[in-house]
Design a protein around this nucleic acid. Structure first.
Length: 561
RNA sequence: AGCCUCAUAGUGUAAUGGUAACACCCCGGAUUUUGAUUCCGUUAUUCUAGGUUCGAGCCCUAGUGAGGCUACCA
C-alpha cells in the first residue's frame, strides 16, 4: 500500500502532542503478551501499533519499544509460548533490540511495592475465601461490605504478608488486598486483590516464589519501572485505568506512564479468542498452533501470508475506540496486493482432463517460452515442455457452454496459455456421460501470434504437458480460517472448521513448480493463487502467484469452489 | 439496575466549528495470451430529538443502540 497516511490516529496524536509540548523527550512503548498461547492476527495490530510508533519516532533519541512477557500467572504460562512469540514478532518485522523483559524479573520490586502499600496503611491481608470476597464485593448497584480484616494494624499485615511469602499458608488461605473503596461504582476499586498464594512452578523463577501478583497490580509497576510513556492496551481495560493510576500514585515508582485503550481487532469468519484457539489445538481439531486454517501468525506464515502484507493490513484498518468487525476481505486484498507485483507465475491443473492434439505434427514444438511475470519482463521467461498430449482443467471445457463462457466447447477455439490456439474436434465420454478425453487440433502459427482472422478466441487456459508434467500435492483452501464461532457450536468444535476449507489434492503441475524446495506445497485460494507453504522459512522458495481465477457466477458455478 | 466507553456508505476509517472523503466489498465498462493485474465508472454515509452558533459529523442535553465491568485470569 502507499505510505500516505496524512491523518494521525488518536494515539499517535497524543504522542505527537506529548513530544511537541515537551511532556516527554522520548517515547517508550511496549508489547506485553502473556506467554499462554501463540500470537494471532489480533496481536499483530498491537505489535504494529507499539513497535510502529517506536519506528515512526526513530529520530527521537531514546524512543524504543520493549517486548515484555507478562508472566505473572505460572499456571498458564510456558516457555514454548515465549519462544513462539519471539519468533512471530521477529517474523512480523520488528526488533526489540536489547529490550526483552519478563514481568517475573520484577517480582522483588512488586513485593517491595506491596510492603510499601502495607506500611502506608493502603493494603491488608484478608483471610476471606474467594467466595466470601466475591459475596462481600456487592454488585453493580449495591456497595460492597468491609472484610473484618480490613482494619488490621500495619504491623500485623506486615507480619502476615511476610509469612505469606515464606510459604506458611496454603493456596487460598489468604490474599493481600488494596484498601481503596468498597463502595466505588467501579468494581475494580473495591479492594482489589494484589497477591495470591500459588505453590506453583514458574517457567522463569522456578520455585523462588509462592505468592504471585495480579495483573492490575503488576502491570502499572512494570510500565513505570521500564519508564514506558504510553501503555497501550485494549478496550476491556478501560475500567482498570483508575486502578492503574492509583498504583502509580501510591507506589514508589520511577516514572508515570499513561494507559490508553484502543479497540481490539475482530475479523469476519475468524475465531480470535486465545481461549478458543487453545481449545481447538488441545482437542485436536487442528494439527497445531500453526495449522494453516488458524489465524495465528504462525498459521498465516505457513499459509504463505507475507509479513509486509499483514503490516499493511494493520496500517489500513486504523485505530479507534469503536468495537468494529473488519471484513477479512481487506486482509486478503493486502495479501494479493503485496504478492501480485513480485510473485512468479506458474501453470497447474487441479482437476485434469486429457487433451490429445491430433494434428500436432503440423507444428511440433518441444517447448514454448512463458513469461514468469506478465507485467515484469525482468522476471524473465522459462521454457515449458509441450507435446501432443496435455492436461487441462476440467472446468475449462463444457459440452453445453452457457453465454459468456469463453473457454473450450464443441467446435470452439481457446488459447493454450503461451502456446497454440486449439480447436475442439471431438470428445469421449464414459458410461455415466462424463467427459474422459478431448480431441483437438492446433491452429499452426498461433504461438506468440494473434488469432488469425475469422477465429474467435477470447480466453487463454492453463495446461500441463502430459509427458513431462508432474504430480504435486496441492492444498485447496476455501476461504480463511475457521468459519463459525465456537459459541455457536454447542457440541464443541466439530462444526467450527469447515472440512472443505483445507483439502489436499494431487495436481498436475509444470516441472518448474514441482521442483520447488522440499516441503513445498501449493495452495489454491478462492481468489485464485498459489502460494508456497512455509515460504518464509525456506530460502529460495518464493510464492507463486495465480493459477486461473475463480470463475464468475455469470456463466455458471464458480470454479474451484 | 449502577458506572465507564463508543456510534460517519454494506465493511473499515478520514474530515481538529467552515463544500462529508479514502480504501475494501459489490456491480458495470475498457484493456488483457491468467475471466488475474491495470484503468474508468455506478450505487450508497454523519443513530434520534432538542439546544448553542452566521455555520455542527465535531460543542451541550436527553433518548436509543452497542461494548465493557461484579476472577485469588490477563
Amino acid at each position: 500500500m502507499t505510505d500516505t497516511a496524512p491523518n494521525l490516529d488518536f494515539i499517535r496524536e497524543i504522542i505527537a502532542d506529548d513530544l511537541t509540548t515537551g511532556k516527554h523527550s522520548a517515547i517508550l512503548t511496549r508489547f506485553p503478551p502473556e506467554p499462554n498461547g501463540y500470537l494471532h492476527i489480533g496481536h499483530a495490530k498491537s505489535i504494529c501499533l507499539n513497535f510502529g510508533i517506536s519506528r515512526e519516532n526513530a529520530g527521537v533519541t531514546g524512543t524504543r519499544c520493549h517486548l515484555r512477557f507478562d508472566d505473572t500467572n505460572p499456571e498458564k504460562e510456558e516457555s514454548e509460548y515465549v519462544e513462539s512469540i519471539k519468533t512471530d514478532v521477529q517474523w512480523l518485522g520488528f526488533d526489540w533490540g536489547e529490550h526483552l523483559y519478563f514481568a517475573s524479573d520484577y517480582f522483588t520490586f512488586f513485593h517491595d511495592c506491596a510492603v510499601h502499600l502495607i506500611a502506608a496503611g493502603l493494603a491488608y491481608v484478608d483471610d476471606d475465601s474467594a467466595e466470601e470476597i466475591r459475596a462481600k464485593r456487592g454488585n453493580l448497584t449495591t456497595p460492597g461490605t468491609h472484610s473484618p480484616r480490613r482494619e488490621r494494624t500495619v504491623e500485623e499485615n506486615l507480619d502476615l504478608f511476610a509469612r505469606m511469602r515464606a510459604g506458611e499458608f496454603k493456596e487460598g488461605e489468604c490474599v493481600l488486598r488494596a484498601k481503596i473503596d468498597m463502595a466505588s461504582s467501579n468494581m475494580n476499586l473495591r479492594d482489589p486483590v494484589l497477591y495470591r498464594i500459588m505453590h506453583a512452578h514458574h517457567h522463569n523463577t522456578g520455585d523462588a516464589w509462592c505468592i504471585y501478583p495480579m495483573y492490575d497490580f503488576a502491570h502499572p509497576l512494570e510500565d513505570a519501572l521500564e519508564h514506558i510513556t504510553h501503555s497501550l492496551c485494549t478496550l476491556e481495560f478501560e475500567n482498570h485505568r483508575p486502578l492503574y493510576d492509583w498504583f502509580i500514585d501510591h507506589c514508589p515508582v520511577p516514572s508515570k506512564p499513561r494507559q490508553i485503550e484502543f479497540a481490539r481487532l475482530n475479523l469476519t469468519y475468524t475465531v480470535m479468542s486465545k481461549r478458543k484457539l487453545l481449545q481447538l489445538v488441545q482437542q485436536g481439531h487442528v494439527s497445531g498452533w500453526n495449522d494453516p486454517r488458524l489465524p495465528t501468525l504462525s498459521g498465516l506464515r505457513r499459509r504463505g501470508y507475507p509479513a509486509p502484507a499483514i503490516r499493511d493490513f494493520c496500517k489500513r484498518i486504523g485505530l479507534t475506540k469503536f468495537n468494529s468487525t473488519t471484513d477479512v476481505a481487506l486482509l486478503e486484498f493486502e495479501v494479493r496486493d503485496f504478492l501480485n507485483p513480485s510473485s512468479p507465475r506458474r501453470m497447474a491443473v487441479l482437476n485434469p482432463l486429457k487433451v490429445v492434439l491430433d494434428n500436432w505434427s503440423a507444428e511440433p514444438l518441444g517447448h514454448v517460452p512463458l513469461a514468469n511475470h506478465p507485467q515484469n519482463p525482468a522476471a524473465g521467461d522459462r521454457q515449458v515442455a509441450i507435446s501432443d498430449e496435455l492436461w487441462i482443467e476440467r472446468d475449462d471445457f463444457m459440452v453445453d457452454p452457457p453465454k459468456k463462457f469463453y473457454r473450450l466447447g464443441p467446435g470452439r477455439h481457446v488459447r493454450l496459455r503461451g502456446g497454440h490456439i486449439i480447436r475442439h474436434v471431438s470428445h469421449e465420454t464414459d458410461a455415466a456421460g462424463h467427459v474422459t478425453l478431448i480431441h483437438a487440433e492446433i491452429v499452426p502459427g498461433t504461438v506468440g501470434a494473434d488469432a488469425p482472422a475469422g477465429i474467435e478466441c477470447r480466453a487463454a487456459i492453463h495446461w500441463v504437458d502430459a509427458a513431462t508434467g508432474m504430480d504435486a500435492q496441492v492444498r485447496l483452501y476455501d476461504r480463511l480460517f475457521t468459519v463459525a464461532d465456537p459459541d455457536g457450536a454447542p457440541d464443541g468444535f466439530v462444526s467450527v472448521l469447515n472440512p472443505a476449507s483445507l483439502t489436499t489434492v494431487t495436481a498436475k503441475v509444470e516441472p518448474a513448480l514441482a521442483q520447488a524446495p522440499a516441503g513445498f506445497a501449493c495452495q489454491f485460494e478462492r481468489v485464485g493463487y498459489f502460494i508456497a507453504d512455509d515460504c518464509d522459512h525456506q530460502p529460495g522458495c518464493q510464492p507463486v502467484f495465480n493459477r486461473t481465477v475463480a470463475l464468475k457466477d455469470s456463466w455458471g458455478k464458480q470454479a474451484g469452489r
